[in-house]
């Protein structure tokens, strides 16, 4: 057994341990903490698989934002006085659940092991076509060019999720400000990070989109960094969340998908929906990426903030 395989086996073991602890931890907060650790370990697995774009997305969204959402929900549930009692179901149900889950794993593993060796996949096809369009990161090429339809729908799904979250706002708070007012000690660590990190985060986000056309990175990773910057600023109490009735805010939310859709429809002139004319492809993809990054950042930040709770 060589060293690389041993390293990967160790990583898999760590991932499984973190997942077991996240699933069975007695304390809910502990389970959430282990879930975040688990997400970071999964991101490492993606690095090992040389899928750095996915690793960035998993670390930022899967571990980071999902973790913030879960911790936020945990604290709101606590405030609402909800019991955290770790009630285990009846042993019979646990046994059946265990058997069913084990059977699922065995069937999946058998299917994986039965796959014929040797794989080529779609990579050669992507590499061959990528040269025409000026974007050299194959993942960005697939996301914004070859399968742009998926990405357009995805940006709309994000927006719809936000609309659904907002729809739970009671009439009395409609148009108000989401989340609780945050206070941080003005000379504390949080306030300091709230001032120190945002400029670095903004530069990093711009770099991630720009680099995304030729290296790992892209609109979703950069948008998450933007959202994280905004969350930090709000948590440090430097700025408050905007009221959800703000026209400017709503424009920011819709701009990305709208520009994407408009360019997509204009593509009808070039032959098909979402087809970019070859000579403009690079510019158009960059335009979509930048506006999309901005809108994704705003949407993610507001998804985490939740429904409106206070008057504007």
């Amino acid at each position: 057994m060589n060293a690389a395989l041993l390293l990967d086996a160790g990583l898999c073991l760590l991932i499984l341990t973190a997942a077991v602890l996240a699933m069975t931890g007695r304390d809910l907060f502990g389970a959430i903490a282990f879930f975040i650790v688990y997400g970071i370990l999964i991101a490492l697995a993606w690095v090992r698989l040389e899928a750095v774009d996915v690793a960035l997305a998993e670390a930022a969204i899967g571990a980071g934002l999902t973790g913030v959402l879960l911790i936020g929900a945990w604290s709101l549930l606590r405030r609402a006085g909800v019991s955290e009692a770790h009630e285990l179901s009846h042993w019979g149900l646990r046994l059946v659940a265990g058997l069913a889950s084990a059977a699922t794993t065995v069937v999946l593993a058998a299917a994986v092991l039965a796959l014929p060796p040797g794989r080529e996949g779609l990579a050669p096809l992507v590499t061959e076509r990528l040269a025409d369009h000026g974007v050299s990161n194959p993942v960005t090429g697939v996301l914004l060019d070859f399968r742009a339809y998926d990405t357009l729908m995805e940006s709309i799904v994000l927006l719809v999720a936000l609309v659904a979250v907002w729809a739970l706002t009671p009439a009395s708070a409609w148009g108000g400000v989401p989340g609780m007012r945050q206070h941080a000690r003005p000379d504390g660590v949080l306030a300091m990070f709230g001032r120190l990190l945002p400029p670095i985060g903004l530069v990093m986000a711009v770099y991630l989109v720009w680099a995304g056309s030729s290296q790992p990175g892209g609109a979703f990773q950069a948008g998450t960094v933007l959202a994280a910057v905004w969350l930090l600023v709000v948590m440090a109490g430097i700025y408050d969340e905007p009221p959800i009735s703000s026209g400017l805010l709503r424009t920011a939310l819709v701009a990305g998908p709208a520009v994407f859709l408009a360019i997509g429809i204009a593509g009808l002139g070039a032959g098909a929906l979402l087809a970019y004319p070859d000579e403009y492809a690079y510019g158009l993809i960059l335009l979509i990426e930048f506006t999309l990054t901005f809108s994704i950042g705003a949407t993610l930040a507001l998804l985490v903030a939740g429904r409106a709770r206070r008057a504007a």
Binding site: V54, A57, I61, G121, L122, V139, G141, D150, G218, F220
Partner: peptide
């Protein structure tokens, strides 16, 4: 393969 990678990023979001 970049195609699964792109689909997975979409899935994560």
């Amino acid at each position: 393969d970049p195609v699964p990678q792109a689909l997975i990023i979409t899935g994560i979001v």
